[in-house]
Every structure is written in C-alpha cells, then in structure tokens.
Design a protein around this nucleic acid. Structure first.
Lengths: 231, 231
DNA sequence: TCAATAGTGTCTGTTAGACATTATGGA
DNA sequence: TCCATAATGTCTAACAGACACTATTGA
C-alpha cells in the first residue's frame, strides 16, 4: 500500500499577505462599543479597526498589543485571539489573511482614544470593510460566549466597582437581566470579589459598597452536564 | 490635535509564509487520539500533523477540509478553527504562521486512515515539531472547553449510538465520571436525542437501545450566572 | 444460577429565582 | 416626608447526585 501514501506528498509553504486586526471593546451606556479609526482623514464616513502588519519575526499577539497600545496609549489591554479570517471579504489593506484579536477596555478616563479614533456602538457600525465588520461581530460573539467561563467581566470594569455595575456588565454580555439576590449569592459562592471599605454615592439611593476582583479559589464545580447549548 | 493622529499612520500589509495544520481527533479506548503522519518515510519516529499550504485564493477552512479529506478519504470531518499560531516554535515546513484546525472523527471503520498515518494517544505524543505539539494540545483544549456549549460529543459518535457510549464521550472530554441517572435526565430535558427502534447487544448484559442525535428545541436555560470558571 | 450491563423510581440536600423587608442616602 | 437604590432574609420549585431496584442478556 505504499502507493496510497503518495496521495499526501510532502507539502510546501506558500506566502500570503497578512495583517493583525484588533477589536477593542468597552461597555457604553447599555451596550458594547468598539474602537474605530478613520480609514482616511478626508473621508469622514469610512472607518476601520486598528490594524497593522506583523513586523519581521514578530508573533501575532505582540503585533496586536502594539496596535492596541498605539491607539489607547501606554495602557495595555488584555488581548485574546479570535482567529484567522481569510475568505474573500475585503480587508482595508487588502490583506489575504487577517489574524484577529479582541481586547477588553474598562470604561473610564483611561479608555479615551487618540484623535481620529472613536468608540462606536456595536449595533450601529458605520461603513466598514467587510472583513472588519465580520471581525467586529466575531469579537462580540467570542466575548459573549466566554463570559461564563472566565472572569472577562472584570476586564470591563475599573479596579473598584459596585456589585450593581458588575451585574450590569454581566447582563450586557449575556443579553438578559439577572436576579439580583441570586447574582450576589453566586458571586459570593465563587469567591471572586472582596469588599473594600469604600462606598460610592451617586444621586439618590443608598451608597453602594465598592468591591475589587480578588479570586481566591476555584470553585470545585463538580456538577453534571447541564446541556446549556448556545446555538 | 491632528499631529496625534500621525501616531497611527496608514499601515501596509506584509507577506509571510503560512500553512494550514489540522488536528483530527477521535475517541480511542479511554482517551482521545490524534491523527499523525510520518514526517519522513525514512525516519520512522518523526511525525507531523496533516498540513498543507493554502492554494491561491483558497480560504483557510477550505484548505483544512481538503487536508482532512486527503487523509481520511472522502469523508468530510466537521472542522473548526483553533486559531493562528505564529511564535518562534518550529513548524515542519518552517511556516511562520500556522492556521490550526481541529476536526472530530467518529470512531469506527470510516476513521481508518491512509497508509503512513496513525491514530496516536493524545497523552503519548511522539516526537513532533514544537508548533505541531502545541497545536495538538490546543486542539484537545478547545474541544474540552466547548463540550458543554455545543453538541461536540455527537461528532465523535456514529449516527446511532447507545446512551452509555454518549456518556463515555462526555466523561472522556470532561475528564471525570458522571452520574448515570442524572446524565440521562439532563439529556432528556435538553431534547437532544431520540430513540430509534434498534437495540444493540454486545457480550453480556441487557442490550442497549440505540439513539440518534436529534436536537428538537433549544432549552430556555434562563438561569443565572453560575461562575463555573475553568482557569 | 450468576455476572454484567441497561434503564428507572425515589429520596434528599442544594440552589436558582421570586418576594419581601430593611438600610441608607437625596430631594 | 417620599423616593430611589443597596443589601439581605425567607420561601419554594426545580434539580443534581446518591441509592436502590428492576430488566434483560450471555455464560
């Protein structure tokens, strides 16, 4: 049967044009916003995601964090790869392949973008290259899907936050409202946060205690399969 | 502030060498096995994942299914992208960038590989290029993480299967044993399978009814956040 | 008959979700 | 005082997990 192994000859690599594209997300009002750059200083209605080509021998994740730093300033967002996109959809630099990353940015003064950039509501994307629109939507998708598996919500909040703010983030990402008492019970059981001795008052109502993210132990979670399918 | 926008000049793409690497997984005994090819007909102890370069204008997922077909025959495995790997770890074709895919193959006669290929226990990987070892491990990781979010288990089984087989797959992927009655209750509540009127007897013991995958409705699953963290 | 596996009924401790109540601020 | 928000206590239905039991085959 040696002939059959000839079906798979030793392959050789090919070159293609590649770019690293970054979708930075932040909570804004009641939805998520993505950071866009003007694609052209003269065209005021064409936008793009921050992106760049990898430098020589630069791994994609380093390219991504370099791109994120260049638009957010020194602050380094926590980036995660979404995947590689290489179909016919057009990229603003006509890259054949896009390596896409998503980053979560806490809402606040640190998230002020540079000139020429703007936070845009994810449900109201302007004119974007098809590849970039696809990546922006995939970024939201990835975050929504991983929210219950890793502590992503805390990356969208400043170091100190109220439990109501935390719950809002979860509701934003899950796309549904949660029961307050249950939410706090689950939070307490998970040992994810600890209270500070600060309180915040805003407007009327009782002031809220501030908490910080302080994961103390992984919950055993020795439970059966739940079959909570998404698709 | 027009000067600040100069910090982000319009980027240009670069070319790099790329490959599409495929990790095909199948259940085997009590663990997962990955399909490996001999890296060199003369070297009997050097192996590699199936891979190839994308053809001109061929999207990565098409390259991946082409590679999968070439080693599995006509059968098309359900492939999913793992991500792009581009660090210094060496690739057998010295590709700078790997676009990695994972595919799930049901155990059975259809999974017989071509000559020069072999299913290898995932815990006993032989000598592999570092890039490929990384991809193989990431493939298992991805599958384990998504098992409770999508019906991956059914892709590792033939169209008709017993509930004990299904439970074994879940136990294999979750890495722990499940309670039989609870497992079946959860399965029934999820409306994922339906019984056929066939039964299978093997060796001693009562014959098992065969089921087929037939998702009928998405379970409401309107439950609070569980905070079942993985990391 | 025994051994082995499939499949089901029942009980119990846990918990998600609902509801109500108290606490504490501003207007 | 009234209203708004935070925070917590209690109840209940649902459910995960444990156990026991029946069912059906081969040896």
């Amino acid at each position: 049967m040696r002939e059959r192994s000839l079906i798979v000859p030793r392959p050789a690599v090919r070159t293609l044009t590649a770019a690293v594209d970054v979708a930075l997300l932040t909570p804004r009002d009641r939805t998520l916003a993505v950071l866009l750059l003007r694609a052209d200083p003269r065209a005021r209605d064409r936008w793009m995601l921050p992106w760049d080509a990898p430098r020589r021998d630069e791994p994609p994740d380093e390219t991504a964090s370099r791109v994120a730093r260049s638009v957010l300033g020194s602050q380094a967002a926590a980036l995660e790869q979404i995947g590689a996109f290489g179909d016919a959809r057009r990229h603003p630099g006509d890259a054949q392949l896009s390596i896409a990353f998503v980053g979560l940015v806490p809402h606040g003064p640190a998230s002020e973008p540079i000139d020429g950039a703007a936070w845009v509501d994810i449900d109201q994307l302007p004119l974007l290259a098809p590849r970039h629109r696809m990546i922006a939507e995939a970024a939201v998708d990835v975050v929504r899907r991983r929210i219950d598996q890793s502590p992503l919500a805390f990356r969208l909040l400043p170091p100190a936050f109220t439990l109501s703010e935390l719950q809002s983030i979860y509701e934003l990402l899950l796309g549904r409202s949660l029961h307050k008492a249950s939410f706090r019970r689950a939070l307490q059981a998970a040992f994810l946060v600890e209270p500070t001795d600060e309180w915040r008052r805003e407007g009327r109502g009782r002031p809220a205690q501030l908490y910080r993210y302080a994961p103390r132990r992984r919950r055993g979670s020795r439970r059966g399969v739940r079959f909570d399918l998404i698709d």
